[in-house]
Design a protein around this nucleic acid. Structure first.
Length: 540
RNA sequence: GCCCACGUAGCUCAGGGGAUAGAGCACUUGCCUCCGGAGCAAGGGGCCGCAGGUUCGAAUCCUGCCGUGGGCGCCA
């Protein structure tokens, strides 16, 4: 459908021109949905923003715009008014909302809410990337839910997305892990600074005596991680190995490229990156004085490789935990030194999640050994609830994940509340089929009978879904969808309570129209849940 | 000490230049004898951490301070 925003914005510009208050170059009339219903469906601050430059009184300018717009009404506009200090408010006709319903049903879950922001641009979203030295824990769960939701949102917005997992299968930690496994296998205590979690003994017991602890342990950990992640519907397209990069010679190529760019130098027997020339606090070591690579160098090679795979115009999005934030500047510096566009690498830093059970905080620290594995979280609350709960808040907050609350199958639990709304509309539709009520054809139904406030509210919220998805994708903020879903589900439950689709006192015409409405609601709920990777059950 | 994020209702959090600041939980009060399933509605409750600044307009942007979490290795 013709975007209502575009239509209103075009009309506003025309009105401004007619009022002799031509908008300056690059001006975009602010169009927003007012917080209060009495301010209409859409509102513009154009008069407020432009009055000063035009030497006009904002309220008078707004009045002039309103008069012109009343005489030259854009499609679906019922009324234009002036309010407050000089807002121009648009009240839309129900035809606009009916359009929303028809479009949602026609698009279905496959296409509803789709945007074309990406225009086929390639994005590689890298997330989780846990070390292959143990199971993924509850903290990784947030990164997993978030990274996958961002990927899903970008897909719905027209990007070509690859989900990627980077395997740090080289270096000190791997050595300690292998030694720990070998020690446990032989019944010896863990080496100093080694791994001593319960899983070490468990895994070591299954390790063949002739196995290479490093290789075997790597496979064991990866298989475990992959299983758990897949149990929450997170599936990666690419698993990139650090060791493979080293073996391929990509590290030496990268080193040569950095040298050629004059971005490295030798000091104290080590090789350094001039990262401070590119915005970092200080220079960083690439090759240690003992000849070993630091973690940084292979990671630079890895990002260089990823950029190549993303191709011209491609975008890299990394999801990192807050404990890696200090690492962002040096990686960007390295990419800048290699001459890449700074905008092609984006790092989202997610704050750490606090886990709570029965009001008792559970530490996620690996060192203390009392980590909560992601497997346990999923086992306790289920994959859907885990994902939804992880995505309840902005990644900038360090939220508390209450296991008991997430696991509860009650309406107070937001996941359950939203899924229940979906199951409810499905069950009404099923009931209609069982009663022999013919499924309505969208074209033939008169939606004009949908005038109940509950019905209007569902339609208004549904009309915002596309904007919500676009904003969530652009801001890498899936929690916007979560928030919308909670509002939308509330509207559906209210409708369910106040408006019967079938039964005594409901005319056949109203039944038909409401069946179409709940089908649109079903699509909206399924699409919202789908972008979060949460299932939309037809019954619960 | 330096860097990043956060500080909004009793609690968990949305909102991130616009009009009278929102939701859920908890609390109070109505409704829900029957339908499609685990409800719906109303109400109380806020110096939006503090102090300055920018702006026609600041919870929102800037500066400083206070508080919380995280980070500041030739670890990964």
């Amino acid at each position: 459908m013709a975007d209502i925003r575009t239509s209103l914005s075009d009309s506003l510009c025309a009105a401004l021109a007619a009022a002799g208050a031509e908008a300056p170059e690059g001006f975009r009339a602010g169009l927003e949905r007012p917080a209060r219903r009495e301010h209409g469906d859409w509102s513009s601050n154009a008069a407020l923003a432009l009055a000063r430059g035009a030497g006009r009184n904002p309220r008078e300018l707004a009045a002039e715009l309103a008069v012109w717009l009343e005489e030259n009404k854009p499609e679906h506009v019922a009324e234009v008014s002036v309010a407050g200090p000089g807002f121009v408010n648009f009240k839309l006709a129900p035809s606009w909302l009916h359009r929303v319903v028809v479009d949602a049903v026609a698009a279905g879950t496959e296409h509803c809410g789709r945007q074309n922001l990406g225009q086929g641009r390639t994005v590689i979203v890298e997330f989780v990337s846990a070390n292959p030295t143990g199971p993924v824990h509850a903290g990784h769960g947030r990164g997993a839910a978030y990274g996958d939701a961002v990927a899903r949102l970008l897909e719905r917005c027209g990007y070509k997305v690859q989900r990627e997992f980077y395997i740090n299968d080289r270096g000190t930690q791997m050595g300690l892990y292998a030694d720990s496994l070998a020690a446990a296998r032989g019944g010896a205590p863990a080496p100093a600074d080694g791994y001593s979690g319960r899983y070490i003994a468990e895994w070591a017991a299954g390790m063949p005596s002739d196995a290479d602890a490093r290789q075997w342990g790597r496979q064991r950990a990866l298989a475990d991680q992959r299983d758990v992640l897949e149990s929450m519907a997170v599936v990666f397209d690419t698993w990139s190995s650090e060791q493979a990069l080293v073996d391929s010679g990509a590290i030496d190529d990268t080193l040569a490229a950095l040298n050629a760019a004059g971005a490295s130098y030798e000091a104290d027997g080590a090789l350094w990156l001039r990262s401070s020339d590119y915005g970092d606090d200080k220079d960083r070591v690439l090759v240690k004085s003992d000849g070993e690579y630091t973690y940084l160098l292979p990671d630079i090679a890895y990002h260089r490789d990823k950029l190549g795979r993303a191709g011209p115009g491609g975008l890299l999005i990394n999801v990192w935990g807050a404990d890696h934030h200090g690492y962002v500047a040096r990686m960007k510096a390295a990419m800048a030194a290699l001459g890449s566009d700074p905008a092609s690498l984006e790092v989202v830093v997610t704050q750490l999640v606090r886990l709570e059970r029965e009001g008792e905080e559970v530490r996620l620290s690996k060192r203390t050994g009392d980590i909560i594995e992601l497997r346990e979280v999923i086992g306790e609350v289920g994959a859907d609830a885990a994902r939804f709960t992880y995505l309840l808040q902005s990644m900038d907050t360090a939220p508390t994940f209450d296991l008991a609350r997430a696991a509860a199958r009650v309406m107070e639990n937001p996941v359950f509340y939203v899924q229940m709304a979906h199951a409810r509309v499905c069950s009404i539709a099923a009931r209609a089929r069982a009663d022999g009520v013919a499924p309505p054809s969208v074209e033939q139904v008169d939606l004009g009978v949908l005038v109940h406030e509950r019905e209007l509210e569902i339609m208004r919220l549904l009309s915002a879904l596309g904007e919500v998805i676009a904003a969530a994708a652009e801001e890498r903020a899936p929690h916007r969808v979560t928030a919308w879903l909670r509002d939308f589900a509330a509207a559906v439950h209210s409708f369910y309570h106040d408006c019967y689709v079938m039964g005594a006192g409901i005319s056949p015409e109203l039944t038909q129209a409401r069946l179409v409405l709940i089908d649109a609601a079903r699509v909206g709920l399924a699409v919202g849940l789908g972008t979060l990777g949460v299932s939309a059950p037809e019954s619960m």
